[in-house]
Design a protein around this nucleic acid. Structure first.
Lengths: 152, 152
DNA sequence: ATATTAATCAGTAATAATTACTATTACTGT
DNA sequence: ACAGTAATAGTAATTATTACTGATTAATAT
C-alpha cells in the first residue's frame, strides 16, 4: 500500500549509514553520500531517512532540542551521550527486561518499545580543556564544539 | 559564582510549570505565564527554563527534531510518548536500578544518569480517527494535531 | 532609604534544523 | 513506446531556538 521504490539515493544513504559506527546527523549523511551522488539534495536525505525509520531499517535517535541523529543498526541497544560535546556512542547493553505489559496496563498506552539513554562526560571531555559547566542536565551540545565538528 | 537573581519572571515560570501535570513546550509556558506577565518575552522563557534546568529545579525532556518539553518535577521518573499525536505522560516507575558503574567502566564515560522513555499509542489515539500509520518509531508529532493543540 | 551596578528583561533580528513546494526525472506495468 | 506516478533536485518557507541591544530592576553596599 505504501509505495516504496528502491532508488539509488535511498540505497546509498542506507549503505553509507550502515558502514558508520557513529551516529551521524542528516547533514553528515548528506556530505558523505554526495561523494557518490554529487547532485543529491538534502531534502532527499531527510525524506529517505524518514522512510527508512518508518520501515524500521534504521533508527532515529532522540536528543534534546539538537539535531536528530541516525543509527544504521535498528536492533535494540542503548546509547551514551556526552553532555559537554554532544558525542553519542553505543553502550554495552545490560539487556534490561522491561515489563512493558505492566506499563501498558497502568498507562493505557499501547506500548511499542522504549528508549534508554545514558548521559555523562565522554573520555575526551574528561581529559580536556572544555571548562564550561554542565549544560542542560539532559543533553545538548556546546555550540562552538558542535559548529567546529560540523565545519571541519 | 553563577549569579542567579530571583526575578518575577523566573518565579512565575517555575510556579506555573509546577502547577501543571502535563509537559508543556516553551511556547505553552509562554502563553500561560503571559496571563500574569503580559509583557513577558519568549526569549525570557527560554532563558529561564534553561537556567532552571541547569540548576536542577525542572527537567528538559528531549525528543528528536521536535520541540523540547519541560517537566516541573525534577525527581527521577519516566515518560510515555504517543508516536501519533506527540502526547507525553508520566509513567508509574518500576524503579530500575541501572548499574551505572558497569556502564561507566565499559564506556569510559563519567556517567551522570540516564533517561528512560517508553513509546506507543495513547488511549485517545487508539480509539481515534487518526488513520495515519506510525510516524518516526522514536517520537514526533503529527503536524496537524500539534498545530491544533497549539492554536486553541 | 538611596545610589550603584551588574544581572536580567523586552523586543527584535538572526540561525539552524527541518519541512513544503514545484517542475522535472525515471521507474513500472501495460 | 507510453501513460501514470513515485521520487528527485533545487529552492522557498516554517519552526524552534538563540543572539543581540538598549532599557529595567534586583541585590549590594553605602
Amino acid at each position: 500500500m505504501k509505495p516504496t521504490r528502491t532508488t539509488n539515493q535511498k540505497r546509498i544513504i542506507l549503505e553509507e549509514l550502515r558502514k558508520l559506527k557513529t551516529h551521524p546527523t542528516a547533514a553528515d549523511i548528506y556530505d558523505i553520500a554526495r561523494r557518490q551522488l554529487p547532485r543529491l539534495s538534502l531534502g532527499t536525505v531527510y525524506r529517505n531517512l524518514d522512510a527508512l525509520t518508518r520501515s524500521g531499517e534504521i533508527r532515529r535517535i532522540a536528543s534534546a532540542g539538537a539535531e536528530a541523529r541516525f543509527d544504521g543498526n535498528p536492533s535494540q541497544h542503548y546509547h551514551v551521550r556526552c553532555v559537554r560535546c554532544g558525542r553519542l556512542d553505543d553502550v554495552e547493553h545490560p539487556k534490561h527486561d522491561m515489563d512493558l505489559v505492566a506499563i501498558q496496563r497502568s498507562s493505557g498506552y499501547d506500548i511499542h518499545g522504549f528508549e534508554l539513554e545514558f548521559f555523562g562526560i565522554c573520555p575526551m571531555c574528561q581529559s580536556g580543556d572544555n571548562e564550561s559547566g554542565d549544560w542542560r542536565n539532559i543533553t545538548n551540545h556546546d555550540q562552538s564544539d558542535h559548529a567546529a565538528r560540523r565545519n571541519q
